[in-house]
Design a protein around this nucleic acid. Sequence first.
DNA 1: AACAACGATGCAAACGTTTTCATCCGGCGA
DNA 2: TCGCCGGATGAAAACGTTTGCATCGTTGTT
Lengths: 341, 341
Amino acid sequence: MVSRHVDIVDVARRAGVSPATVSRAFNHPSLVRADTRARISAVVDELGYIRNRAARSIHGKRSGTIGLIVPTVDNAIFSRLIQSFSDALNSRGFTLLLSAHGYDLGREKDLLRSFLEHRVDGIAVIGLDHENATFALIENRQVPAVALWNHDGASRMSCVGPENHHAGYLAARHLADLGHRRIGLLFPPTRGNDRAASRLEGAEALLAERGIDVPDRWRIEAVYSVAAAKRALIDLIGDGDIPTGLVAGNDVLAQGAVFAAAECAVGVPDRVSVVGIGDFSGSAEMTPSLTTVRLPAAEIGEAGAEILLELVRSQRRHPLIRRNLPLELAVRASTAAPPAP
Amino acid sequence: MVSRHVDIVDVARRAGVSPATVSRAFNHPSLVRADTRARISAVVDELGYIRNRAARSIHGKRSGTIGLIVPTVDNAIFSRLIQSFSDALNSRGFTLLLSAHGYDLGREKDLLRSFLEHRVDGIAVIGLDHENATFALIENRQVPAVALWNHDGASRMSCVGPENHHAGYLAARHLADLGHRRIGLLFPPTRGNDRAASRLEGAEALLAERGIDVPDRWRIEAVYSVAAAKRALIDLIGDGDIPTGLVAGNDVLAQGAVFAAAECAVGVPDRVSVVGIGDFSGSAEMTPSLTTVRLPAAEIGEAGAEILLELVRSQRRHPLIRRNLPLELAVRASTAAPPAP
DNA sequence: AACAACGATGCAAACGTTTTCATCCGGCGA
DNA sequence: TCGCCGGATGAAAACGTTTGCATCGTTGTT
């Protein structure tokens, strides 16, 4: 009972029309008479015919797929982005190809190649920092592309996101405005991660403006995980000399820091204030609730999809589109004025 | 300067061979002489040729894609699953197509159809509860498929995951063993979510065994979000009559419950014990650290990919493969014996 | 020296669509 | 009556690959 797969010719034969008519019934319904269309539709259901997009896209038609390459899926903030990007795509009839490169820009290029083999109609990547080969691939192929998560007025490709530099700046400014002078920086490795790098630069810019110096022992590096951040901060607290304020590169790290403080009975915000970046799910609900710079993840995904599909539609010359999304500081319970010395 | 895209014939011409040879150089390198291969490879680089998988898959070849349909991406536990599934796929040269149906099984079927149009080589879905049309589509098409996240010895399709029923049972048993008799259940809506439904059944089965009755006011429903769970529990606490133990349908809900208790100054575990299911990232680090039933998310993703690719390889008749992954209770600080009455 | 065997390559058909162009038919105005 | 037009459909070419079969040297065997 090995029924070969039914194709458009089978449908045509059974409906008593030519394959061309069946094809038209799908793609240009107005060109085929209503009763013919109905007959075809009935046969399609009867035979369980499913169109073959590969065969379609071979004709220079759209493949109907969009590729998204992220550093990692396993991170609350990208999850929300992926979700909204995917929803926006699906609602417009596109299918998402997804891959994660694990913060390895070399792998990113390979994944891009693989997506191009699949002839995706467009490409979305995270951030503006990529290998030259990656840019070259995109430019030579003239494939519509957009960078999510980072805005830069001088970017080499279309982009949509907030200014990460400004996010770091805002977070640090909040602490400085509260009167903190002894400030620590808890950031992930910035190699191959221009978002984190920009945030760090932004924080440092503000601190320099205010004449605040951050000693090396208060510059802490931890990979993106609550556990790693907690461990790193417990070490710092163990050393005795702790800052009164801490800027974390994102909310996962900030959460880890808060948990560490709780475990070491170091009051937040009484002894140390913590500010994060991201406003992940849970940050507002934890105790103490986390002060953070809200990144509009869902908006980025939606706007990114919109821009990308716009580029896909505009056949010829792809213009550069840049969209700057606003940041806002969410002041909650994890920050306060520094304790009296 | 609108350079038409370079195809295999262009490469062949430039390399002074036939298209067939170029094709073979890619797919069966052993069949072509080393120096010819080198010449072709040079031309490929020079011209920036990228193979067209659509054209390949039209020949009945693999498309090299696997479809994964999840209820939502925006959830820590699926994130980890997606990540490991994706990695396993990539490492074997496959590309992931991902879609989320938002707990709507009707949309799930539509997404499946769309994946089939793309001629995915295999399909992975979450859970064993699907529309009949979904099963029919999979069976008629004879497309390799696997259900992730749920094991059932009598399942209609291949599956890999833990027994969710047992997860609920373990969580409830832990509380009962500690001596709790006044137990509440905090679960998500179970419609279209057989994982949650099974867990709830498992918990209820244990409670019935022990002769413990759960009044309706202690059966709380909240969608999968820390915020919703927190709100629901704050309401419950406000009512005054609170249970000594709480089984949460997953860690997100459990975290919300713990945060709610903290906000209302209800001690965990002194006044109320909370047990979750999932062991999400952060559960071990929060204060108090969360007692939970660990679900092996990463293992499921990897095993799922393995099984699926196995099915893809085994051309003909697809056997049913079922893999039961073990659960384990992680006892941490959020549970203890009930307070003396 | 004739021939078999083998390795490397080319030729052409095939895959499942879409689309251009041609055909056919009925109706309409001159 | 004739020619024309427009709507519906069919025939066939095209898309970019892969692959079965044929071809052509070379080399080894008898």
